[in-house]
Design a protein around this nucleic acid. Structure first.
Lengths: 258, 258
DNA sequence: CGCAGGACATTGTCCAGTCAATGCGAGCAA
DNA sequence: TTGCTCGCATTGACTGGACAATGTCCTGCG
């Protein structure tokens, strides 16, 4: 265990384990050597070994499970398809096949809904083009799959538009909140999606039961009516280890020349 | 300073600093107290203070700069718009405004291109529906902005389709590789985008100069011709701290009833 | 047989220290 | 003024220890 090379010892340890994970020596779900074993193997202090393991944990490759040891992480993402709200079925065979392949068949879904009326956070207010003091209704959802939290979804509506509608009731709206909004005269015809990638806040990590090294996608969708009025902002927090986000795109006739 | 509460000391330290960052006491770019100062302030060992700071680093909130200290991270994302390859201009005023607001005006772009012929990695081969042994051409690009690496973009083409075309030359193709492909008779009319969110590999971290706590979006775009043949797979690695990914969606007349 | 309790292996938290690496600025030299 | 060197503050790497927390598993009792 040559330490003169260059890289610090803890990085060498991490790299060796990373290799074994990459080439399959350590398969998904397999247990890594214990800290004690690595300490003996590399003839370093336990702190150094822990530093190396922490690196792998923060890369999302490995999960520490007290007091059983470290294990190689598994990844089996589910499809998240923002376009589905305007288009129930994919319109190309390629997309259809992809969704089918990563489907949630046989898994048991569940969700918790909570409704509140509040002053909007700044970024929401901006996207809804609200004046100071205007309130919003928010429907907060946590979605579960097989007893594990899967994603967070908060939908914001200007309170003016939805007061006294069923959007304010914390029940499942089977035909969708968008449909209710349409019935109220605010049919969305366009949406703007923004996707940010970052580490979760401690609060998000707690609610989604995220281990260290699990980043999230932060999806903000703003829905507009025909005349350009924003009527809904949906914020979804998607753990990176549990999702693939997909879109389908079509070239349009008018855009022919590039 | 109370350690009887519950949370370990290093988490309390992290939480206190996190608070100050959130409420603006520590603004973006500001310096945090040094390890020594925190050691005195909380009356704990240096190791404990470092454990707390490491937490913040891995959350992407803070950047350690040896030997100057720890600083609050800045975030100024640039727009990445996959739809742009089929549609140069956004078609709604909302999207147009958003792109303008986050534009790269005045920044100096640069890119390095490298071309290779290789056996495709498995995930690429699968998306291009290649048989065993079929080769691909790959155009690897690193894009820079203001001297900082911005993203990695590798485009794969079945070698059969592009041999002897200018796609194999490591030059900038001003009209776009897609246009060349179209001239060769493989005009893409549909694309499937997949977005994965994860921590970077050490190699990606090195090439993109990513600090700890910076996740990446892994964008895989598969382009299809009219008859459903996949002719291009583009893999883009986007550092989370430097990008927003946006899409624009339209409800279509035929999808009226949800 | 079933269950309660305890031993054990393993990671989590924390301490007190050493020496290395490095960017910056003060101060000196040309 | 300009340029170079060197000291210094600060983080990085690492040691070797102690005790806590917590699933697992085995033992033994009822």
């Amino acid at each position: 265990m040559n330490r003169v090379g260059r890289a610090p010892m803890y990085q060498q340890i991490a790299e060796a384990l990373r290799q074994q994970i990459a080439d399959g020596t350590l398969a998904a779900g397999a247990q890594l050597p214990t800290e004690a074993e690595l300490t003996d193997l590399y003839e370093v202090g336990r702190g150094t070994v822990r530093q190396g393991l922490t690196l792998l944990v923060n890369e999302g490759l490995v999960v520490p499970t007290r007091p059983r040891g470290y294990f190689v992480r598994k990844r089996e993402p589910m499809v998240f398809r923002p376009q589905a709200e305007f288009r129930k079925r994919p319109y190309s065979v390629e997309m259809d096949a992809f969704v089918t392949e990563h489907s949630a068949d046989g898994r048991s879904p569940r969700q918790m809904i909570e409704v509140a009326i509040m002053e909007p956070p700044q970024d929401i207010a901006k996207r809804l083009q609200l004046e100071d003091g205007q309130l919003v209704a928010v429907r907060r959802r946590i979605r579960w799959l097989d007893g594990e939290p899967f994603n967070l979804n908060d939908s914001y509506f200007p309170l003016d538009l939805v007061s006294e509608s069923e959007i304010l009731r914390p029940d499942d709206i089977s035909r969708g909140a968008n449909e209710v909004l349409a019935e109220l005269g605010y049919r969305q015809v366009r949406a703007l999606d923004e996707l940010y990638v970052r580490m979760p806040t401690p609060d998000e990590a707690r609610r989604l039961e995220l281990g260290a090294g699990t980043p999230v996608a932060y999806h903000i969708c703003t829905g507009y009516t025909e005349n350009g009025q924003p009527v809904r902002v949906a914020v979804t927090v998607l753990p990176g280890d549990r999702h693939v986000i997909t879109y389908e795109r079509k070239r349009e006739a008018s855009e022919d020349a590039q």
